[in-house]
Nucleic acid binder design. Structure first.
Lengths: 190, 190, 190, 190
DNA sequence: CTTTAATCGAGACGGTACGTCGTGTCTTAGA
DNA sequence: TCTAAGACACGACGTACCGTCTCGATTAAAG
């Protein structure tokens, strides 16, 4: 957005400060505490300043989450497909834990039922989690290790969903056995 | 619990009334509105009466959700396994939509990251969704259509997770194609 | 009241217990805390039991104060009038402090403007404080040390009021000088 | 206080409005009803607005009373001392009745035993009642009608206390006889 | 020595007020 | 000119008492 470029530098600085504070609060204390009052206090900024940038609390929370939703990067893999997928599953597990995915996903899901913007954001957020797997599959397809008529997104979802289900829906740890099982099953269907 | 039996019938009636009102509010306007003030007003009950039964707003919300979390019932199926599973997937889709699962799941997920009771409740809620599929598989196992060394819960999760993922995580509709695909893949691994 | 004699002994015991607890609370924490809830708790008695004996909180407070309002006793004095009066002023000062008169008077005055029963009670309470002085003057009159046409109650009030004023209205200590001054002035008018 | 001068005029207006409403309530229904909820309602102001200006209910009541405690003004008298004092006693009686002194004094006394600020306020309030008499005596002293070694405050208290006692402690009317008696006695001691 | 009636404990219930915290709107000064 | 400061109305929170009202469970007194 070139709009942001032209902005008063002070304004941009303040906006950043607020968002970063909001992120910190979200990770530290959960989405419940991403409140205009609390963020303003923590960022040492007037409450009204926040309202000048975002119309209400939900917008602030949404912007906060969107600021956290950055593409996950995985190193390009080029080993045999099975290995790459397994590695990617491992990375996924790691990302789930280290990036406090539960908090963010919870915040999104908590509003998604009533608020379409949150719904889109949740879609995006989940897609970002799945993206590296899609890339891995596409690379394999290019290398000829995967049939060209396969829909990489569908395949990725099939691979990823049991893992996310275990972690985000059942709130349980992800064992190596689960990852192995998922991989084995998937290989059988390829 | 015979304790509840001995309760003053009026008390029990009021408790029911409150919970039912809370359920209505939750389904109508979302978990955000399951507020002591709103529920009290809608149930035409004093705010303090609610506090006499539940210590705070979260407890009320939790109780409300737990009151909604009743085992899903599916008719016993005895057809060939593939058909039964496919039927069950269909039922699952139906239940997701008709029982406002998105609202409830969102409410749970929104608190689960901070509150263990909500986490347990979420676990339970998701299990209830999966349960009919588990039963179907167990029946098939008894009929000899499924190898006895299979873990029915694991299999059920593998079957169910792509569907839930599509609906709860990606917030998208569940197509027949998806259900077919899931079934086909699973059959290949059996 | 022979009515009270016929009462169930248990009832009488409980009534006493409540009143004594209320007195304790009044002296310890002030009239603000003579609350049905607090007294019931301190007396280890059900709240409803208190309501069975007094219709509401004000009645309880009033009864508590009335139970505290017992005639002040002074030893009969027979010395010369000036000495007796001075001694009585001293006793008055002592009683004001030791019997927590400020708390009780405050409680009474706080309700007297709105509630006639409290007003009567206050009148009585203040009279009791003045009574010993009246007796002293009457004794003096009988001994011929005071003209028979004097109104003992009026004289007592004239003697007592500057002292009460100093303590209850101005909330200040009562010095010996004040007592001496009051006595001297009064003697000049006799 | 120039601080108050600089205040936003709206703020000052609101503060005034609240205090005036509180005074009205106090005079109409007694100190018991000087409640944040009631005053807010009567002043058509949000409850929180009151809390922004006074930390709690007691502070509001105190401020209300202090706002009512304005110096009593008497016209300068220059007649003979005895007449002046008698006039002043009359004025005092009038003020007691017309300015609802019983309500205010009751409210003060009701809290004075527990709260030092109320105690100071009560002291001040009573002093204001006595003040005109002090002035009258000082004027007399200046005119040479009163010995210079007399303590005007003490004399005023001696004159005033029987009257206040009659009205505030005994809750009875103040007769002309009483005023005459008090004056006569006092003249004898001068 | 039991039975019967008054009294009590226990606690739900509708209320009112408290004092706190958050929201979103608005106005007034300042940098 | 943008921003800070903060007043304001509003609404919900959770707490503490109020006074009313069942219901058993005790207890005292009378049959």
């Amino acid at each position: 957005m070139e709009h942001e470029q032209r902005e008063n530098p002070r304004t941009r600085r303040v906006r950043r400060l607020i968002l970063e504070t909001a992120i910190t609060v979200l990770l530290e204390s959960g989405a419940q505490d991403v409140t205009v009052a609390i963020v303003a206090h923590r960022a040492d900024v007037a409450r009204t300043t926040i309202y000048r940038h975002w119309p209400d609390q939900q917008s602030l929370l949404l912007a906060t989450i969107q600021a956290m939703t950055k593409p996950h990067q995985s190193p390009q893999l080029a080993g045999p497909l099975a290995e790459d997928v397994r590695t990617e599953l491992d990375h996924l597990r790691t990302r789930l834990v280290t990036r406090e995915v539960r908090s963010v996903f919870g915040a999104l899901a908590g509003h998604a039922a009533q608020n379409d913007e949150f719904q889109s954001s949740q879609r995006l957020f989940v897609s970002e989690l799945t993206q590296p797997m899609v890339h891995t599959l596409e690379a394999a397809k290019r290398r000829g290790e995967l049939a060209t008529d396969r829909d990489c997104l569908l395949e990725a979802n099939l691979l990823v969903s049991p893992v996310l289900h275990q972690y985000l829906a059942l709130c349980e740890d992800i064992s190596d056995q689960l990852l192995d099982e998922v991989l084995d099953r998937w290989l059988l269907t390829t």
